[in-house]
C-alpha cells in the first residue's frame, strides 16, 4: 500500500493581487475650510489604483486621524496653533512604487 501525501501552498490574498504602478485618481475633501477645534473637521479621501496599496498621510501642523481600514480616508482638524493654510499629503505605495498628491485645507478662527 502506498500513501501519497502532498501539500498545496495557499497564497495569501495580498499575494494574489496583481499590482501596477500606483496612481492617485483623486484626492478630495468634503470641506476646504474648517474652524479650529475638534468640533468641525474635514474628511479627506484618497482614491488610488495599482492594487495592494498602503497609504501614508502627513501634514506639518494639524491632526490627522485614519477613518477606515486601508487608510485611504482620514479626518483632519487642528487646534488654534495650526490656524492658516495647511498642505496635506497623501502617499499611495505598493511593490511597484509610490505616488503623492497634496490638498490644501484652511483652518480658520471661528
Amino acid at each position: 500500500m502506498v500513501f501519497l501525501i502532498s501539500c498545496e501552498k495557499e497564497d495569501s490574498p495580498a499575494a494574489n493581487v496583481e499590482t501596477t504602478t500606483p496612481e492617485i485618481v483623486s484626492l478630495s475633501s468634503d470641506k476646504s475650510n474648517i474652524n479650529f477645534g475638534g468640533e468641525e473637521f474635514a474628511t479627506i479621501s484618497c482614491e488610488a489604483t495599482g492594487g495592494g496599496l498602503s497609504f501614508v498621510w502627513e501634514v506639518d501642523l494639524g491632526d490627522i486621524f485614519v477613518l477606515n481600514e486601508d487608510g485611504s480616508q482620514v479626518r483632519f482638524t487642528g487646534s488654534e496653533c495650526c490656524i492658516g493654510e495647511k498642505i496635506i499629503t497623501c502617499t499611495a505605495s505598493n511593490d511597484n512604487g509610490s505616488v503623492s498628491e497634496t490638498i490644501v485645507i484652511v483652518i480658520d478662527k471661528p
Partner: peptide
C-alpha cells in the same frame, strides 16, 4: 515616527 498610516506632527 508614524502612528498607523499617519506621520505624526512635529509637536
Amino acid at each position: 515616527q508614524e502612528d498607523g498610516s499617519v506621520i505624526l506632527p512635529i509637536d
